[in-house]
Computed example of a mutant assay.
Amino acid sequence: MTTHERTAFDSAAAEDILLRACALAGLVADGVEMVRLGDHAVFRVAGGRVVSRVGRHADRLPSVRREVAVARWLEAVDYPSARLATDAEQPVVVEGHPVTFWGGLADGEKYASTREMGELLRRLHGLEPPPFDLPELHPFDKVKKRLEGAEIRVETRTYLAGLAEELTAEYRKLDFVLPPGHLHGDFNIGNVLRDAEGRPRVIDLDGFARGPREWDLIQTAMYYDSFGWHTEAEYTDFADGYGFDIRRWPGYTVLRSIRELLMVTWLSQNAGADARAAAEVEKRVETLRSGSSRRGWAPF
């Protein structure tokens, strides 16, 4: 199948790209299992011993190359993060889609404690900056592209685009209190997994950037505050582990709203191929419109 013939990045297309990348990297593609589909398609390969990430768009290539550089930097300073697998040059590129291979972490579903998360994030932010440039954080960069490609109702697209404009203006007014520096960019419980020895490791390194450290704290706070996915004790452990409670900062609600918007637009990418995702997008948008509780948002 050529680039021009491929019309959608769905699970079948992603797996086709993965199988071809495995051949190029010299990996035996047995036991392939999809984990999730978002900005990347994530697969377990070789019975979970390897995890592969297939970029949705060719424009993901710069961030994936940065992800590989970040992984090598963190390994060099002995920070507990995901490690690249195979001796092949990475990323492997198939039809413009960047594909990377990583050492599997346990069964992929054993998470760190929230206190460990806070301590790991504090340690990460305390590292000397990497020996290469990181881009500045631009939280809204992905919103436009996601909405352009999403198969959602016109009214929904218009509302989300308008909300993005409003929040962009609010973001520019924020007075951050933590010193800026390098960021993970997507720090949450799903991205801190245990390895085979039970040690926590930070994964999904493609969002590294420079910017306000508050950005790395927001998701754990809102997972407790907005969705009830963490208990109060778990959130307290996270804040104590890091040494700062972002909910006490006046700009918290603005960052929370931005992250909620990103969660909706991330999911909107799958609306055309997944009826459950499409329904969840509309449900989430209705709560954004009405200001009602987010407790009914289903994890994806």
Results as ranks from 00 to 15, higher is better:
158 T>Y: 03
92 V>I: 15
270 N>R: 15
112 A>H: 06
41 A>M: 04
49 R>S: 14
113 S>I: 04
281 V>D: 01
281 V>P: 02
46 A>E: 13
229 W>E: 03
167 L>T: 06
215 W>F: 14
261 L>D: 01
223 Y>C: 08
144 K>L: 10
230 H>F: 05
233 A>C: 03
86 T>R: 12
221 A>P: 11
84 L>F: 00
195 D>M: 04
96 G>S: 10
131 P>I: 06
10 D>A: 12
108 G>T: 06
122 R>C: 05
106 A>M: 07
124 L>V: 04
141 D>N: 08
93 V>D: 00
90 Q>M: 09
76 A>E: 14
232 E>V: 09
20 R>A: 14
206 D>N: 14
179 P>L: 03
141 D>V: 13
266 W>D: 14
126 G>C: 06
266 W>M: 09
266 W>I: 01
216 D>C: 11
186 D>N: 15
232 E>R: 15
170 E>S: 15
66 R>T: 13
164 A>F: 01
195 D>S: 10
86 T>M: 07
36 R>C: 08
250 P>K: 12
224 Y>N: 07
228 G>R: 13
56 R>Y: 04
101 F>R: 08
199 R>F: 06
51 V>T: 11
158 T>K: 13
253 T>N: 08
266 W>C: 00
176 F>S: 02
21 A>D: 09
276 R>L: 08
132 F>E: 10
